[in-house]
Design a protein around this nucleic acid. Structure first.
Length: 297
DNA sequence: CACTTGACCTGTCCGC
DNA sequence: TGCGGACAGGTCAAGT
């Protein structure tokens, strides 16, 4: 899915467009992706005004004047596309081409009708969801409450990171980074990118890392997340004026989906393997596998 | 308990 | 060109 930088990119874009607009109606094309009691729908649809667009981890939150919020998880293939009647269009999320096509399309699951515009929730694989929750209740819900800290939060320290990681001694560093209860918002791309930055093999067990290595890893993670947010996420995103220019999809990646290409640091061919059940990219020279260290050196 | 694997869906790409 | 299988940026329940 969109990971933290992608969801943040969407948040920034929608925060420019949505606040102040009123919700006129909701068109649910796939029940599975927006399950809510009929009474609840009415209670927020009736003239609700959009107040604010927030993010927590990979979750997007749209606060409404009715004190309800739309809580959105895009999972793997979700995307949000804003289409104004005057032709302005903004979309981000999964990199498919619905920035230029007619909406709703085959992947559209929910259409939120607004003043002079529509917000489309598209999701090819139907893993994503929208939930309607009382705003005050959001901090209490399970999937929010158990999330780890935001990696870019000012008050998130290396010490905190080390303590949290150390609770997963027997798992790979890759699995630990992907675990949303350890740290929130990191997915497959930024796991691979930050491990490359810190010169750590993804399969290294947490217990085999030094505190210094974990601290370095956090620095690399913050760097790749910030870089990605600055480049608008590794996803198509744009205000599309007539000819829909593409976003900077993965232009900055150094190992992710670059198997067979050369490591930008040492020129060795990047490999792809499987760690923690996920496709995993790494440089076999910069990131030596601790399990085969003797054989390799 | 700690950790890993399968399932959820649909689309695409790759090898025969 | 057609078909089967593996795989896809996520997360949970069920399994070991």
């Amino acid at each position: 899915m969109p990971e933290l930088p992608e969801v943040e990119t969407i948040r920034i874009g929608l925060a420019e467009l949505l606040p102040g607009l009123s919700v006129r109606g909701v068109n649910v094309l796939s029940e599975k992706n927006f399950q809510v009691a009929p009474g609840d729908v009415q209670s927020f649809v009736a003239g609700a005004k959009i107040k604010k667009v927030r993010r927590r981890a990979k979750i997007l939150i749209i606060d409404l004047s009715t004190n309800y919020s739309l809580v959105i998880h895009l999972k793997m293939t979700g995307q949000l596309v804003f289409c104004a009647n005057d032709g302005r269009r903004f979309g981000a999320g999964h990199p498919t081409d619905s920035l230029v096509g007619t909406l709703p399309d085959r992947s559209t699951r929910v259409e939120l009708k607004l003043d002079g515009a529509s917000l489309y929730f598209n999701d090819q694989r139907k893993f994503g969801w929208i939930r309607l929750l009382p705003t005050s209740q959001i901090p209490e819900v399970d999937f929010i409450k158990k999330l780890g800290p935001e990696p870019l939060a000012a008050d998130f320290s290396a010490t905190d990171f080390i303590v949290r990681l150390s609770k997963r001694p027997g798992t790979s560093i890759k699995a630990a980074l992907l675990d949303q209860t350890v740290i929130a918002g990191v997915g497959n791309i930024y796991t691979d990118e930050s491990l490359w930055g810190a010169r750590l093999h993804p399969a290294t067990l947490v217990r085999d890392l030094t505190e210094r290595q974990m601290e370095l890893l956090l620095n690399e993670l913050k760097k790749v997340l910030e870089l990605s947010i600055r480049s608008g996420g590794s996803t198509d995103r744009n205000y599309v004026d007539a000819n829909g220019k593409k976003g900077s999809y993965l232009n900055f990646a150094r190992v992710f989906r670059r198997e067979g290409l050369r490591c930008p640091r040492c020129d060795t061919i990047i490999l792809k393997t499987r760690v923690a059940g996920r496709g995993t990219h790494y440089c076999p020279r910069c990131q030596r596998d601790p399990r085969s260290k003797d054989a390799a050196t």
